[in-house]
Design a protein around this nucleic acid. Sequence first.
RNA 1: GCCCAGGUAGUGUAGUGGCCUAUCAUGAUUGCCUGUCACGCAAUCGACUCGGAUUCGAAUUCCGACCUGGGCGCCA
Length: 457
Amino acid sequence: MRRTRQSSSNTSTIISLPPPTHCYRILMRIPIQNVTPECGHAEVCGWVHEVRDLGGLAFMLIRDRTGIIQVTIPKKKVPEAVLAAVKAVSRESVVRVAGPVKAIDKAPGGRELVPESIEIISLAETPLPLDVSEKVLAEMDTRLDSRFLDVRRPRVAAVFEIRSAAIHAINQYFHDNGFTNITTPKIVAAATEGGTELFPIAYFDKEAFLNQSPQLYKQMMMSAGCEKVYEIGPIFRAEEHNTTKHLNEATSIDIEVSFADHLEVMRILEDLIVKTYAYVNTTCSVQLANLEINEFILPKAPFPRLPYADAIEIAKKKIEEPIKYGDDISPAAERAIGAEMGGHYFIVDWPSEIRPYYAMQYEDDPSICKAFDMMHPRMELSSGAQREHRYDRLVQQISKKGLNPESFDFYLRPFRYGMPPHAGWGLGADRLVMTMLGLSNVREAVLFPRDMHRLVP
RNA sequence: GCCCAGGUAGUGUAGUGGCCUAUCAUGAUUGCCUGUCACGCAAUCGACUCGGAUUCGAAUUCCGACCUGGGCGCCA
């Protein structure tokens, strides 16, 4: 502590910090992983992980996000106030403990803190809604009800630290490659594509919806001349699905690139996946260890390009249910094909009739289009396409789908004033984290998941 | 939306008509214990989702509601 105080006073001399008030205390606090016998003296703040009272000797484990330290209380040698605090404190209370740090082989981590003072900053109620120390595991529903306690568990925190690292790597990748980060509205007037249900919301005297995808806006930015854009943001789908891989609010990583075709944006996608895994691998070893992931398998580019027609053939051979060319790929088929492929792969050359109107058809065979899905063996992670940028063709394709081009006026307008050819994709961030870490439920990868049954917290 | 399986102390569970005054673990409370590390020991506390029905008797069977998990559909 002496050392820390000195350095902070030096710092304030140099850069003239305002007189320390409560910040002074924060500067004195040492992250638990940095507490070593060389500190001499330390002040740690954290949560009471456990108390073990042996009679004349008590142990208290203090946890912060960096680790756990043992506080050892020889009852005859510590101040009266410390004894009172040890007696009064409950598990998961927030405390500040200060005292000398000693090297002791029999203590966890080889060091322990003997308190001169223990301050109970925030006393936790008992009993706890779930067991943070993981002696008894809680079910997903219980955990989500008390997510603030759930995330105190290192293995849960690890998921979100890795998610953060992955998102960082993705932002970095786009930044390094000249993409413009955009933010598009989530409150919109109408659907951008058919199919999925929208959440209606009250918007003053108008009808509005939560956006299901930034698709239209990304494409508008192509017309706007931004050439390479990306967005990481929420998307909303009002589907009444009830599965381990669907949410009503998800995070989508979206890109759109001008003068690129589907093949080019596929290369970007696989490169991004490979680099994101690599970044997590090199920066999150502690978190991966917390998750007991001993072998973090790094995907290798290029991912195989599997034509849709071949994917259907594989599924036909491997699963019972009838499946034919032109069908959507069912979850069972998805798993069967995934098992065959063994790693990330693309499904390409989709029948035009089962892809949205905006996918560009092949010139030599309009029955298939330049759309793709990027798959993990367990599920779909991304879907994208080269878009149809020619106004007349686009109108034609909208009509062919049985839709009325007039109701797409807002969408079509940018195509009338100089639209470059372009391609893009959307990648599910939650599913990316889920499959990366082998989580069984997408809810594990989302702090506060929104599904049909859950709106709180 | 459909199908299946469930709902028992704070948490996770056992219990398929009477042996339930409900099992076990964890937890909480109190006491003992100077090297614990899932500390140990002792005592205590704490639960059958709700409503209706069948039955001499229901945690257990039936009906309805609500809630949860999984699969499918839809979707990404």
